[in-house]
Design a protein around this nucleic acid. Structure first.
Lengths: 184, 184
DNA sequence: TCATTTGCATAACAGATGTTGTGGAAATGT
DNA sequence: ACATTTCCACAACATCTGTTATGCAAATGA
């Protein structure tokens, strides 16, 4: 289902995948939009509740959260493909679009907490956590897109390397005593 | 046309927009895929050849190139909406997907040149230009996506601010004499 | 001027899609 | 055990999609 994109998410395809018929779907979802919304919520929830890295605190925790967004495994790649595919439908529908805005805002908020925690530990430069979180989210989001379109050019190792370079630059921006906390 | 997404790019819609009929389109394009390819090439070409910022050299030139990718104007927003919408179709089609990989690789190459130039001027930290370009492209790409879904949260001013913060961190990563060349 | 080709509107077609019944089987309650 | 409701398979539907076929008018060339 990650292969045919979001446009290929048809009632009959879903029913076939489920070994059922369209009758079942129409019985549970009044319209297709409801099914789409449910599918997206399910994807988000599943992504949120999957086994996550949680190895440390401060900068390491922030790094873990960002690593969890990258298509480093085939499952994560599939999820991200579906996610990116769904942007088409989302941009066409203002309500869905707003929903996405909220979801990404929530994600930024979660990142902000880790940013603030890293700052308190002195592992991250001072600055508005929300801004730093927005920047980090942008970086990872864009990396996801590039990795999806050119998997050969962005193998997991390079994705991690790019992220670590980004984080290293984030630690000590201007003048600093060069606290170096880049892992791997 | 930027409103209905890429899925809504139907032959009849295009024909209507063109005050013509499907006969014209089938006469010029053997199949719809050909039309899609043409549309995407046209979009890329138009994006590439539109009036661009070119105010300076070195770091300023790099910044200009990145600013040109952001949805800072309504036209740029429309272009980016179409672009992001098209990712759905592209991910479903391996040939299109590879095409996108090439286009983004070309974009990274263009960025790399500016990165190298900025490095030669001593305005940017040492490092593989290709890596720095890939990182910058990721950052901007992700920022585009976030700005499209939450225009209110990412007004042009904030986009520019985030980009400048990113570039500032890029200038002086570890130990440095803090050459500060952030504009605006 | 006439024959031939080109350019495209119009219509028809097959396939797919979301949606809406209809009917029957299973579950549920009494 | 029976009545009633829930659940869903199946089929029909109207609509929209890309594609193909037909035909006519304008352009083109001799």
């Amino acid at each position: 289902m990650a292969a045919r994109g979001f446009t290929g998410l048809t009632l009959r395809a879903v029913a076939a995948e489920l070994d059922a018929t369209t009758g079942l779907l129409t019985h549970y979802f009044p319209t297709k939009r409801a099914l789409v919304e449910y599918a997206l919520d399910l994807l988000e929830q599943r992504t949120l509740s999957r086994p996550r890295r949680d190895s440390g605190r401060g900068m390491a925790a922030l790094r873990d959260a960002l690593l969890d967004m990258l298509p480093l495994t085939s499952e994560a790649t599939d999820s991200n493909r579906i996610w990116v595919s769904s942007w088409d439908a989302a941009l066409s529908d203002p309500a869905l679009s707003a929903d996405y805005g909220r979801k990404y805002a929530a994600s930024r908020d979660r990142l902000s907490e880790r940013v603030a925690a890293a700052q308190e530990l002195g592992e991250l430069r001072i600055g508005d956590p929300a801004e730093i979180a927005a920047g980090a989210q942008s970086f990872v989001l864009g990396l996801v897109v590039q990795a999806l379109f050119a998997p050969a050019a962005f193998p997991p190792q390079r994705q991690v390397q790019l992220l670590d370079d980004y984080l290293a630059a984030l630690v000590a921006p201007d003048r600093s005593d060069a606290r170096q906390s880049a892992q791997r």
